[in-house]
Design a protein around this nucleic acid. Structure first.
Length: 920
DNA sequence: GAGTTTGAAACT
DNA sequence: CAGTTTCAAACTC
């Protein structure tokens, strides 16, 4: 097994004493170091996850949160469960996975069928309950439960086939339990490891069994060897055992996995395999490239011709994605990248695989460049609301958030598609490769992954060893596909240093990283670490660059377009490069520096900070002057910003930018900057208008330039503002409605709408916005309802809500998402955020979270102090509070919005988690 | 390809 | 929160 790797997961997941050896392994230690969890690991797992919700933590990851949406919920649950399970069940999962080997095959097959049904959602919940099971038996039970659950939950959807499959699975499980032990992989070392132990979760087992039977086991073995070599001593059998033990413990989890994994796994594996295969191929409908990856299982299969029968087989194995990945797949994975899928996949196992297609490539960097990627645009349209995802796609960074989510999925199962769409955009465009989307996953799989060490090893080698060479060769970190490649040596690709990891994608072949754990195999570990990182900085995985809206600009700015319009969330801190080299993240992303930047001697060709600031001020002034009479809050520009931010930042990306916090929705991001895209601006305004008082802000935002263009919009804004003012406290709802209406109806609105529509093309964010806009009215209304929550949270929530609301939203994530963070109330932002801050966001469905989030992210996120200040103010309320209060009037709105509901409802646990995270 | 520079990320 | 260290990418030779 990949002796070492597991550590992370094992440590975290397995936690249990057994894992100790694993923990000992360098990886474990490393992971431990990385993740806060580690201490907890054994217990932690339980503890950390203890709260059922805890698992959600994992899920909490923004992406996950997104899942929350009702539809997603189902899956999400699963994922959540997975998370929880992971914490609790990790070990179990593994075991389960392991156990079932033989039977698993069958099961997996059945699962696949089930997966198709993808009724997992309910299952997840059940899982939670079930989780407790221990031992292989548990697994069987678990499976049985799942089955039952599935039948129950999915019952509706559950097809007879499912049931059958379930039955089969159960039977198989029972067999598996026995077989687990019996299953030894031929191999040698690895096998031996696995042997007595239940090491592999049922799924894995199933896969292994299948593969093993097929003779694929070899893959495992090989990888294991490789890993062993690398990790020798670190985690030998012991680790595996620990893993297994853990697995046993987590049967429930396994069970989940079994089901999910089975279903998912099978599909996932397929997907993964496909991914591997597909990556390059991947033409997705959605995003194009990205989408291709997404195609998910089915498509995936198509996407690439199974390189080899073996690959196919391996891929096909029912195992969880993780498992799949972990296995031979890993190799494949190595080749292709998997994007971390959001948990929601939970819905269906399938989801997991999605990533492949998606290729989130979160790599913002890449994305930045490619904004243009049509893919994104495509995606957006498809999903519409998905903005975030879409956005993400566009902007690489955005994509990170990821996550894409998938979201959608549920119904769509698309989760894949959705994901693909979302993720795809990000990656797809560039990443033709199959990114392996990090499954936000379901964490469920993780164990499997672990199991796969051996595989992993191979993949590991592939990725790491060979890749290095490969990558080294390539001068640019970005693959031809557009995917980024990393060359991490010491971080194991589990830190933000790693572009892949930071982008929320798994390392792929092109990567030259060494000791990479950022693989599907180690999904658990990856998730854990991600969570840890997010706990520290909710926005850590948020797209760094808020996409510009260049497109909005259509005319003028578009040229610059690209990035210029976009901004760097945190801003750069360049001292020597003058923002003229890629050392500068802003420059690298082709975006201009903003007020959030702390660079010295900025000469960013895409837009100097000074210019940006000047523009903002000018705009602000204008806004102020305009509003002066009108507004109650004349406040300084900053104040405005703050207010906006507080209320919702979504309005303007800039604000966010300023704050740096906002992971703004792309749209926002796009809006400004140096290039104030008039469109974008106008657009922003609209949004601003809509909801919050932000109108003022928007107005402020509207640059003079914009003003020219946006006169209409500006006028609209003004009007809106006036209206708002007239109203006194606005009701968000009202305002939004107005706004929406305005947007929709007013010429400006039209323009905006156009923008939005266009946006897709231009900016993902915009796309999101547009999508949102399209759905906006509803969304806004919803939001307004939701808004009641004070402050950012509302906004974020609103945004999330939008998304959620948005029909499109696959992005359940949003729910969870950090949107909560409040950065972006807007859907776009929200999306991004959401992805990032899965947990929090999820929880945050409530406004509070948003607040919390905001703070947490702040590190760099809130770039400029001012921003921070603002943020603080926002949260605090202050002047804004006044507005907020006004808004609060809105708050009265029940957090009806689906988002909220979904969030809250879906994640009661999540809420807890969120609280925690937020508290963090 | 190796070494240096750079700035972000992580750590203290 | 600020300062320092670590890291990997970007860049140079």
């Amino acid at each position: 097994m990949g002796s070492p790797e597991p550590p992370t997961i094992s440590t975290a997941t397995s936690t249990s004493s057994e894992s100790s050896p694993v923990q000992d392994s360098p990886l474990t230690s490393y992971i431990n170091n990385l993740s806060p969890i580690k201490p907890v690991k054994a217990s932690h797992v339980a503890q950390g996850f203890s709260g059922l919700n805890s698992p959600p933590l994992v899920f909490t990851s923004p992406r996950i949160s997104s899942h929350h949406e009702t539809s997603f919920l189902k899956r999400p649950q699963y994922p959540q469960l997975s998370i929880a399970e992971l914490s609790h069940n990790d070990g179990r999962d593994k075991k389960s996975a392991d156990g079932p080997c033989e039977s698993e095959k069958q099961v997996t097959q059945s699962c696949r069928q089930l997966i198709t049904d993808a009724h997992k959602d309910s299952d997840i919940n059940k899982y939670d309950q079930v989780q407790p099971c221990s031992s292989s038996i548990c697994v069987a039970e678990y499976l049985a439960d799942h089955v039952a659950v599935d039948s129950v939950s999915s019952g509706d959807s559950a097809n007879p086939s499912h049931k059958q499959s379930i039955d089969v699975a159960e039977s198989s499980l029972s067999d598996l339990t026995d077989s687990k032990k019996t299953i030894k992989f031929d191999d040698e070392n690895d096998m031996g490891k696995y042997e007595g132990t239940e090491l592999e979760p049922p799924q894995i087992m199933s896969e292994k069994a299948a593969e093993y039977l097929q003779g694929k086991l070899i893959d495992y073995v090989k990888p294991a060897k490789n890993e062993e070599e690398q990790w020798k001593g670190q985690q030998p059998m012991n680790e595996l055992l620990t893993m297994e033990s853990d697995m046993s413990v987590d049967h429930n989890f396994k069970g989940q996995r079994c089901e999910d994994s089975c279903t998912q796994a099978s599909e996932n594996q397929r997907v993964i395999r496909r991914r591997c295969l597909q990556f390059e191929e991947a033409p997705l409908n959605f995003v194009g490239n990205c989408a291709s990856s997404l195609d998910i299982t089915d498509k995936v299969t198509n996407s690439r011709p199974p390189a080899t029968a073996a690959e196919l087989e391996g891929l096909e194995s029912p195992i969880d994605i993780n498992a799949a990945s972990s296995r031979g797949e890993i190799f494949k994975l190595s080749q292709s990248r998997t994007v971390l899928l959001p948990q929601y996949r939970g819905n269906s196992p399938l989801t997991v695989p999605k990533p492949s297609g998606i290729g989130l490539h979160l790599n913002s960097i890449v994305s930045a460049v490619p904004l243009g990627h049509g893919a994104i645009a495509d995606l957006k349209p498809a999903e519409g609301h998905m903005p975030s995802a879409v956005i993400s796609c566009h902007s690489i960074e955005n994509t990170r958030s990821f996550p894409i989510s998938y979201i959608a999925e549920d119904g769509k199962d698309n989760s894949m598609s959705s994901v693909a769409a979302s993720s795809a955009p990000s990656e797809s465009p560039n990443s033709k490769e199959p990114l392996n989307v990090l499954p936000v996953r379901h964490h469920a799989t993780p164990h499997d992954k672990r199991k796969f060490y051996s595989e992993h090893d191979e993949s590991y080698e592939y990725c790491q060893l060979s890749p290095k060479k490969k990558r080294k060769k390539t001068s640019s970190p970005i693959d031809s596909n557009g995917c980024k490649r990393c060359n991490c040596k010491k971080t194991k690709c589990l830190k933000l240093y790693c572009d892949c990891f930071a982008a929320g994608i798994y390392c792929a072949e092109p990567c030259a990283c060494q000791g990479c754990y950022n693989r599907p195999e180690y999904e658990d570990t990856v998730l854990e670490i991600r969570q840890q990182i997010e706990s520290r900085n909710p926005l850590a995985f948020a797209p760094k660059i808020v996409q510009p809206v260049p497109e909005f600009n259509n005319g003028e700015d578009e040229n610059r377009a690209t990035p210029s319009s976009g901004r760097h969330k945190r801003g750069c801190n360049c001292k020597k490069s003058m923002c003229l080299k890629k050392y500068c993240e802003c420059y690298q992303a082709n975006v201009g520096c903003s007020s959030g930047c702390r660079c010295d001697g900025c000469k960013n060709v895409f837009g100097r900070k000074e210019e940006y600031v000047a523009t903002e001020h000018a705009v602000n002034k204008e806004m102020i002057s305009d509003r002066a009479g009108e507004r109650r809050f004349e406040g300084t520009f900053d104040e405005r910003l703050e207010m906006v931010a507080t209320k919702k930042d979504f309005l303007r990306p800039e604000v966010y930018d300023l704050h740096g916090l906002t992971p703004l929705t792309p749209s926002f991001m796009c809006s400004d900057h140096g290039r104030p895209d008039r469109k974008s601006q106008s657009f922003s305004r609209r949004y601003l208008q809509s909801p919050e008082s932000d109108l003022a802000i928007f107005s402020s935002y509207v640059d003079p330039r914009k003003s020219s263009r946006t006169l209409d919009s500006s006028d609209m804004l003004l009007q809106a503002n006036k209206e708002l003012q007239n109203v006194g406290c606005y009701d968000w709802q009202v305002d939004y409605n107005n706004v929406e209406i305005m947007d929709q109806f007013s010429p400006s609105n039209d323009a905006v709408a156009n923008m939005c529509h266009q946006t897709p093309l231009s900016d993902p964010p915009l796309m999101t916005v547009s999508s949102s806009s399209s759905s906006k009215t509803t969304d806004w209304t919803n939001i307004s309802q939701v808004q009641p929550s004070p402050g950012i949270a509302y906004l974020s929530s609103s945004g999330s809500l939008r998304w959620r609301n948005s029909p499109i939203t696959p992005m359940a994530r949003l729910d969870g998402m950090k949107s909560v963070q409040g950065l972006d109330p807007d859907g776009g932002l929200c999306d991004i955020l959401e992805d990032e801050t899965p947990e929090i966001l999820k929880d945050s469905a409530t406004p509070i979270k948003s607040v919390k989030v905001s703070s947490p992210n702040q590190k760099r996120v809130s770039p400029p102090k001012s921003h921070l200040h603002e943020l603080g103010s926002n949260s605090s309320g202050g002047l804004r509070s006044g507005r907020k209060f006004i808004l609060k009037a809105v708050p009265s709105f029940p957090p009806l919005t689906p988002c909220i509901d979904s969030k809250g409802g879906t994640n009661s646990k999540a809420n807890n988690i969120e609280d925690n995270s937020s508290s963090k």
